[in-house]
Simulated scan of single mutants.
Amino acid sequence: MPDAGPLLDTHGRVHRDLRISLTDRCSLRCTYCMPEQGNEWLARESILSTDEIVRVATIAADAGITTFRLTGGEPLLRRDITEVVRRLAAVESPSGPVQVAMTTNGIVLAEKLDELIDAGLNRLNISIDTLRRDRFAALTRRDRIDDVMRGIAAAAASGLRPLKLNTVAMRGVNDDELQDLVAFALDHGAELRFIEQMPLDAGHTWNRSTMVTREEILESLSQRWELTPVPGRGGAPAERWRLDGGATVGVIASVTAPFCGACDRLRLTADGQLRNCLFSTHEFDLLPALRSGAADAELEEVLRRCVWAKLPGHAIDDPSFLQPARGMNAIGG
């Protein structure tokens, strides 16, 4: 294992993206993510402080991380979210300032967006799985679609680009809205990114038969637009297509068309666990070192061990595949 230079794994992948979960709590209860009641939240004393997040992020940036993506749960539930963004936006990697992105459900975004942009937020993804009020309430178990729409409108008006809207495609739930969702995104100057439903629900009820596949998504969209592949994907999770030669749409096909071979992402959970894969069943605990006075070199060594141990792929289609014990809200997107 190299003790300096880029964050390299045994398969030659250089890691440049750190997903930082700020909380496991969320203002929605999406059926594919967590149950409505009985959730076991992380103990408050285990949640990383802003100082601890910034320390880990700075060490990661020194090792070559160039993007921090803030996730949850819902990151905007964190009371000091603006301070987190401001301090992370000040971090630099050897190649220059680090980019700060965020994935949010958008519910309180309209109220917070201006201060987040002033603090240094560079990019934004907003989750929206349906345009119908009844479906939104059934899917999220909360009647908050008006708040999400206000958040999307604020983001569109802000000029913050690129702006992306994320949709989990689900059979019998929203698969008849795929074209409408793309059109909605285009109207707001955003790129719609469809995500294949993954086995990351806290209740472990995922069933492949309910997942709308990449090919089904593309077949639906091709009925309305001419799709032209966008080259140069690199390590990005989404494949992208131009619609009639203009705006773009993306598909993240983690199940049917895995992109593990180019993966450059790591994850830091809200309670200080490093994960080298979204589907990993093993974590590297930074919390004891962070809170026992460990030197930065010790924390970097844990970071490098985590990267070095990364498997070639998630093996969802392998009979031995085990779903992670944590749900998506506790892992962080």
Rank of each mutant, 00 (worst) to 15 (best):
R326E: 14
D201Q: 03
R267I: 15
V307S: 03
D24Q: 09
A297N: 06
E83L: 01
S320Q: 13
D285S: 15
S27I: 05
E36F: 10
E219I: 08
G5T: 03
I20M: 13
H204P: 01
L221G: 09
D176G: 07
T10F: 02
P199H: 08
L77M: 07
L48C: 05
P75Y: 00
P312L: 05
L139N: 03
V148A: 04
V249G: 00
L131P: 11
I145P: 11
D296C: 08
V84S: 00
N125S: 06
D244E: 09
F184L: 12
W241I: 11
T66W: 03
A236T: 03
D129H: 12
R79K: 15
S127H: 09
P229G: 07
G232H: 10
R86V: 01
V212R: 10
M211F: 04
G235H: 13
L7H: 03
I331H: 11
R55V: 01
L121D: 09
R25W: 06
G232V: 09
R142K: 13
N207Y: 02
V91L: 04
A60D: 06
M34E: 09
A202G: 02
A289D: 12
L227C: 12
L200Y: 01
T10C: 07
Y32K: 02
C33F: 06
G327K: 08
L303W: 07
T248Y: 05
I20P: 05
T213A: 07
A157D: 15
N166F: 01
L243N: 07
D129Y: 05
I316E: 09
D9V: 06
L139T: 12
W41H: 15
V173E: 13
E36G: 15
A110P: 08
C263V: 07
T82V: 15
T213M: 03
L186R: 11
L322W: 01
R135L: 14
R304S: 10
V230R: 01
G245L: 11
L278D: 04
M149T: 07
I252A: 08
Q99P: 00
E111L: 04
T210H: 11
D17E: 11
D134F: 07
V54F: 01
G293H: 10
V14A: 14
T31W: 11
E216K: 04
R291T: 10
D51A: 14
R55W: 00
L165S: 07
F68D: 00
L28S: 04
S222C: 01
H11T: 14
I217L: 15
L113R: 01
V230H: 02
R16S: 14
T104V: 10
N276L: 10
R123N: 12
D17K: 01
A153C: 06
M211S: 04
L160N: 07
Y32R: 03
Y32N: 11
G159T: 05
D285A: 14
I47L: 15
L221R: 07
V85K: 00
C33P: 02
A119G: 00
I81T: 08
R265P: 05
P75M: 00
F194A: 10
N125D: 02
A262F: 08
S222H: 03
C263D: 11
A190Y: 02
L88T: 00
D80P: 00
I59V: 13
G234D: 12
P319G: 08
V91E: 03
L287I: 07
L70K: 02
S93G: 06
A257R: 12
W206T: 10
S209L: 05
V173P: 12
D146C: 08
P324A: 15
G5P: 06
H314D: 04
E226I: 13
A63S: 14
